[in-house]
Structure formats: C-alpha cells, structure tokens
Design a protein around this nucleic acid. Structure first.
Length: 431
DNA sequence: TCTGGGGTCCTAGGACCC
DNA sequence: TCTGGGGTCCTAGGACCC
C-alpha cells in the first residue's frame, strides 16, 4: 500500500503557525511580484477566491471582507516543509518527498502489523502537534489511488464528516471513491486532456478507468496515459522513489517587476539567473553541458501577439563556472532577442548535468573557464555571498547602471519574517 | 497599471554517423 | 533495375505536476 500525506493549505498554514492572529481569518499567499493567489486558507476558499487568480482583481473586495494577503516567503515554507518531512521519515519505512507539501509513504506489509487508518490518524495528529501544520492522509494500492483517497479525505474533513484519513483497501471502496472524483481532478489529467475526455463523455475518474487502453495511448500521451489507467484500476506502475538527489536540471526564471525593452536590462536579468544557477550547480557538485535561455512577452496582451522563445546551446565542456555560464547565456539571449518588444520574463535552464570534474576534456579552443584558478575564484564568490548575503558579489553584467535599482527586481510588499531561518527575524515572545 | 516559479517526462523531425 | 536500418544528438515544444 501507498500513503500520501498532503499538508492542508500549506503556505497559508505556515503563515498562521507564527501569526496566530490570522487564525479564523481568510488568508491568501501571493506568488512573486504579489501577482497571483497561490494558497488560500479554508476561509478564503469559502469567500470564493480561486487558485491562481490575479490578486489585483480581487484585492479590494477581499480586504474589505477582512482578508489578509501575504507575499510568498519561500524560506519559511521550505523550513516548515523540512520539519514535516523529517517527522514522516521517522514513522514510515520509505518516504518520497514529492513536493514541498506532499510525500508518498511506502507502507508495503504494514497492514499485517497495524490498522492503517489508526496508524495514519496517529501520524496526522503528531505532525500537527510537532509542527503546527494540519495534514490529510490517503492510503491505497497505487500512488494515483492514494492521491484520490487523499483528495476525498480532505473533502470529507472539510464537510465535518471524516477524520482526515481515508484508506481504500478493497474493490468496492475503490469503485465508490472513483465515482466521487471528477476526471479533471485525477493526478495526471490536466486541462488539455480533461477537455478531450469531456468531449467523449468521460466525466468521472470511474469512467476514465473504463476507457480502452488503445484510446488512452492514442489520446492521453502514449505510455503516460496507459500507466494512468492501470494505476486507477489498482495496478501499481510506480514505486516510492527515496533517493532523489540526482537532479536533472536547474531552472531559474522570474517575471520582472516591470516591463523591459532594453537588451542590457534583460541581459542583466539573464546574467543574474545564470549566476544563481551556477551557485546551485557548485553547491550540488554538478556541471552542465546544455544551457537554455528563454524570454517572454506578456501572454495577456493581444497586440502584439505574445512572443516566447528559447535557445539551447551545447557547451563545449560541461561547466559550473559562473563567468562561463554567463557568457554563453548572453550569446543565447542575442540569438532570440527581437528589438522593440515588451519583455516581462526571462530565464536560464541548465540540463545535461554531470558530476563536476568528471569527463572534462581539454578543449582545442583555448580558455573555457575550467582552470584551478577559476574554481578558486568561484569558491571565493560563493563564500562572500554566503557570508554577506546573496548578490553581495556579482558579475558585471548583472549590475544595474550606477545609482539605479535592478530594473528586473520583483515586488514583494507583504512578506512575513524568516521566523525560523534568520537570527534577526526570530519570532519574539513577550514574557 | 497590476496575471508565479521550478521541475519531470515525452514526442518528433532533421542532421549525421556507420 | 534494384537505393537500408539503426542509432545518437540537437532542437523545439507540449503536457503535466505542485
């Protein structure tokens, strides 16, 4: 059996742990630039706020009704997530940390020794007590069904009908559960495939489980669709993946705080991303062989039509050197740059990762940044930025014109303190 | 005026190689 | 007259996840 533990309204719950005055009030957490609503407390959901809605569209009414908006504070959420995951690892034989607020548990064989519902209820209570974060637990014979069980456990708990735990361990329960879930809410069915399914009359997870394999292969993404159907029928196609430290790519991208049209300004953002991505490579002991630069104009403007392009470059030698990465990133940017457009976002993706220092052939084309001196320079760069704060030392391309603020910097007007990770921002308790 | 960010996996055509 | 097949790499993009 597989368990899925999912934190309720995770970001909003994290804010509440350290700001108890938010208890009982509608709370939302906003994406970068205070753009969209990305998390909602139950009270905010009741008010009708939708996930992903641009905040400016709902701000006035929400605040008038007593709502509180928080800018996202990923440092806090990351630390709270580690606490929850650490505890789960103490309780289950194997844990796959699937996302910041979700984990799959490998529970194979445990039903011989425990009543799984009782065990899960105990874990749920302990997570709440130790971290302040409420969770729900779904348990079933496949990961996809565990997601279904979790969704229903949450739904029932909100309706005041369940314990926040649901175990699906026989055929009748499986059928009943699938009939209660809309097809677009199944893990692996996005809005594209949901539309296709509705067009042929498939509206529930139960109906989806009955679709023919050939049809699924043809219309639901080949093997991906076939696996999805198997899992819904109770045949597991994927296990719990514990060691997931081999990352396959690094992606750094951000919307700008304002529209940018000058090449040097966008180049500054790209250089910043390349540098940050390089830091992550060095931290993980990796080097990248492929570098992709992306730029976008607004998807929401009709005229001119949205422009979104990427350029992928194959580097002559895998590298983790910020100066080299920055140089190639600028080259990529020049390839996709169209003058006169209003850009809102840029990013850098590094792929083709390998362990740094392995397989690094000498190049015929001179300096490629792989010298010991450069490695030492990068070490000094990381040490300075670690000690004096991110961005204390930068490549020149990432430095804005004298006397100006970074034109690409984002807005974050309502961020809570880093309660658990910065001495200066610790929670204060008055005695 | 103001619409997120970081990932994974898969597909498919063309170039190129033997 | 008859003109292959298998493989990798590159590039771009689609779909999905939280």
């Amino acid at each position: 059996m597989f368990g899925l533990v999912d934190c309720n309204n995770f970001y909003a719950s994290c804010e509440r742990v350290f700001r108890p005055e938010l208890e009982g009030r509608p709370v939302v957490v906003l994406s970068n630039n205070d753009g969209c609503v990305v998390a909602r407390s139950q009270e905010a959901k009741v008010l009708g706020l939708k996930m992903g809605v641009p905040y400016f569209q709902v701000k006035a009414e929400f605040e008038q009704r007593g709502g509180v908006a928080c800018s996202s504070n990923y440092e806090l959420y990351g630390d709270m997530s580690r606490r929850v995951m650490w505890y789960l690892q103490q309780r289950a034989p194997a844990v796959e940390i699937y996302s910041v607020d979700e984990a799959f548990l490998d529970l194979h064989g445990m039903q011989r020794h425990f009543d799984l519902a009782e065990w899960a209820g105990d874990v749920r209570g302990a997570v709440r007590q130790r971290t302040g974060i409420p969770v729900c637990v779904g348990i079933a014979p496949t990961k996809t069904l565990a997601k279904v069980a979790n969704r229903l456990a949450k739904k029932d708990a909100i309706a005041g009908a369940g314990s926040g735990v649901l175990v699906l361990d026989d055929e009748a329960q499986r059928r009943e559960a699938l009939a209660r879930v809309a097809v677009e809410d199944v893990w692996g069915v996005g809005h594209r495939n949901a539309a296709k399914l509705y067009a042929v009359g498939v509206r529930t997870a139960a109906q989806l489980a009955g679709v023919g394999d050939a049809w699924a292969r043809k219309h639901l993404g080949g093997v991906v669709g076939a696996r999805l159907l198997h899992e819904l029928r109770g045949f597991s196609c994927s296990g719990v993946v514990v060691e997931d430290e081999v990352r396959k790519s690094v992606c750094k991208s951000r919307s700008f705080g304002q529209v940018l049209s000058e090449l040097e300004q966008v180049a500054g953002a790209v250089a910043t991303h390349a540098a940050r991505a390089g830091e992550i490579l060095r931290h993980d002991g990796l080097a990248a062989r492929l570098l992709t630069v992306t730029v976008e104009t607004s998807r929401f403007a009709n005229l001119p039509p949205p422009y979104s392009h990427s350029a992928q470059l194959t580097l002559p030698v895998a590298t983790d050197d910020t100066l080299t990465l920055t140089k190639w990133a600028q080259r990529g940017l020049e390839r996709i740059w169209r003058p006169g457009l209003r850009y809102v976002k840029a990013g850098v993706v590094l792929d083709g990762l390998e362990r740094a220092g392995t397989n690094q052939q000498a190049s015929l084309f001179g300096d490629l940044g792989a010298s010991p001196a450069r490695a030492k320079l990068m070490g000094a760069l990381d040490a300075l930025n670690g000690r004096y704060g991110a961005g204390a030392v930068k490549v020149a391309a990432a430095v804005p014109a004298p006397g100006t603020r970074e034109p690409w910097a984002m807005r974050r007007d309502a961020k809570s303190p880093a309660f658990t990770t910065k001495w200066a921002e610790l929670w204060r308790v008055r005695c």
